[in-house]
Amino acid sequence: MLPLDPLDVEIVLLLNTELSLGRIARRLSMTTSAISQRIERMEDRLGHRIATRKRNIRLTEAGMEVLRTATHLKMHSDDLARRLDQLKNPSIKIMADHSLLIHDLPLVLQQMTSDIPKLSIHLTTGSFNQIIQAVNDHQADAGLIAGDPKVIGLQGRPIRKEHICLLIPNNHPLIRYKTLYFADAIRYPMILSNNLEHITGHLMDEAKRIGAHLHIPMTVPHFEIQAHMVSRTDIGIAPTLESVAKRFISIYPVTYVRLLDDWAENLLSAVIREKGSLSDEVNTLIKYLIKLNH
């Protein structure tokens, strides 16, 4: 069987969605007779009738098989077009927490733009779950998260070790501790960040284990707002990343206490799609992120 050419593919796909040759002809800026002749030539090559010729066109059983092939060819053609365009206009879309974008990416992106002069970089911020969803839906090429994506089709590439701590005001009763278990701080209200959504279950489990109530009066979109709220209000203390806390203690009147719980050991990961679908730009990003942190 001869393969379908690009116009054949478009016609077969439209046979599945349009109900008349006239509408297909208008969509493709062709005449109805030209469309009809094209279908007949396909049928001669295939040895099967692929569509009825009644008032409303319907694909035959053979036509449905051809449609599956046409859909497959269209997807591969579109993917090839994207890849070729990427060679001419290299770009990368990265999503992370506001604080991680500022801390972890400047030197990496500077090196990447030096290596790839035409590179176009698009940075956006998002929560833990938003980042995973964006990468999974091809809305982002890579994301930075504290933890493991644990989603089929995605993988987390470890970048550096991270640790969960509690960010507290300088006048807080916990100021006398350098380290403690979360259970020892559970009676204080907590300001959570959407970028540590993966630890919420641990916090709830710990509260349940000791029969305590976990009070969460506020959840914020990223770490910087979390630090600002801890320093400017008495709403609560905040589970956050130690690397983030170290930066904010020089900006805000806050300090941090390291958590001793096993789940407090984390990794900062670059979440990406499975290896086979990675672009050169994503591979370069991962390479420099790892190099910078080791």
Rank of each mutant, 00 (worst) to 15 (best):
R49A: 09
L196R: 06
P90K: 04
A270W: 00
L67D: 10
T179H: 07
E162G: 15
A96N: 02
H222K: 06
R41W: 01
D148G: 06
M64I: 13
L21F: 04
E61A: 12
N136G: 11
L7V: 14
N170M: 10
L19H: 11
Q130R: 10
V282N: 01
E18G: 00
S36D: 10
Q111G: 08
P149H: 04
H215Q: 10
L84D: 07
D115P: 07
A34I: 03
R53N: 10
A146N: 13
E40R: 14
M112D: 12
M1S: 13
K275A: 14
T284S: 11
T113L: 02
A70V: 10
L4R: 02
S279E: 02
H103C: 14
E10C: 01
G143L: 02
N171K: 03
L260N: 15
I249F: 07
I24H: 00
I210K: 08
E162W: 03
G153N: 08
N293M: 09
I24K: 01
A51K: 08
L73G: 11
M64D: 13
V151A: 09
I249W: 05
L101V: 11
A238C: 15
P106K: 07
T17D: 05
R68N: 13
L101R: 03
M190V: 08
I24S: 00
L241Q: 11
R38E: 11
S36M: 06
P253A: 12
I159E: 00
N171T: 14
G211W: 04
Q86E: 14
I210Y: 04
N195F: 00
L119M: 05
L268S: 05
S127E: 00
N171C: 06
D78Y: 01
A134Y: 00
N89A: 14
V282Q: 02
L19F: 01
L180N: 06
